[in-house]
């Protein structure tokens, strides 16, 4: 790969990595694995970088790799690791509060079902776009989405009219 292509890759990462981390966090459920997931997706993308950028904006390609990597990534964490996240106690911007109930609920979904939820309701992709990205039929997306909503309905506390969205400051930290 030429230095120009490497530089283009660096620019792309600078522009898109934060968004990829957000999606990966919802897919993986914790910061460490989200970062690993994004790194693997970027590595796979870099292997085909010249071909990817020749087709236009590489964002969709990377997102697809991110999701397919996630759906195949049945890690040993499920039974052997416990995710403990701590934030540094130092002054800085407010940190959004972690929604443990939501993250737990997402973790109970099979990887593909979780991906459908994230793509449909976080990325706001249509059923057709989700199907295209995941390489499956629209019917499969619909079914997975229905099953996911049925499960989440049982797992998530119903929204009260005055229930605040969990974006308030809990602990100081830095981005």
């Amino acid at each position: 790969m030429s230095s120009d292509e490497d530089e283009a890759f660096r620019d792309f990462v600078a522009g898109q990595r934060r968004a990829l981390l957000r999606t990966a966090y919802l897919l993986a459920g914790d910061h460490g694995h989200a970062e690993d997931l994004v790194q693997v997706a970027l590595l796979k993308t870099h292997r085909h970088w010249a071909r990817v950028i020749s087709r236009g904006d590489p964002t969709a390609y990377v997102r697809r790799v991110l999701v397919t990597t996630h759906t195949s990534w049945r890690r040993r964490r499920a039974s052997t690791e416990q995710v403990l996240e701590t934030m540094p106690d130092q002054a800085g911007p407010a940190v959004p509060e972690r929604d443990d109930e939501l993250l737990h609920a997402l973790r109970t979904l099979p990887p593909r079902m979780r991906a459908v939820v994230v793509l449909r309701f976080y990325e706001d992709l249509s059923e057709a776009q989700t199907a295209e990205l995941m390489g499956c039929s629209v019917g499969t997306v619909k079914t997975q989405s229905s099953r996911a909503m049925a499960r989440l309905r049982d797992l998530l506390t119903p929204a009260a009219p005055d229930r605040p969205v969990p974006t308030t400051s809990r602990k100081a930290g830095r981005p």
């Binding site: 957000r22 966090y25 910061h31 959004p96 976080y122 969990p166 830095r174 981005p175």
Partner: peptide, 18 residues
């Protein structure tokens, strides 16, 4: 509700000092 919570959770994910 799910949309709002996913966006809030994703914001939390973006704040990790990694």
């Amino acid at each position: 509700d799910l949309r709002a919570r996913l966006h809030a959770a994703a914001e939390h994910g973006a704040w990790h000092p990694g």
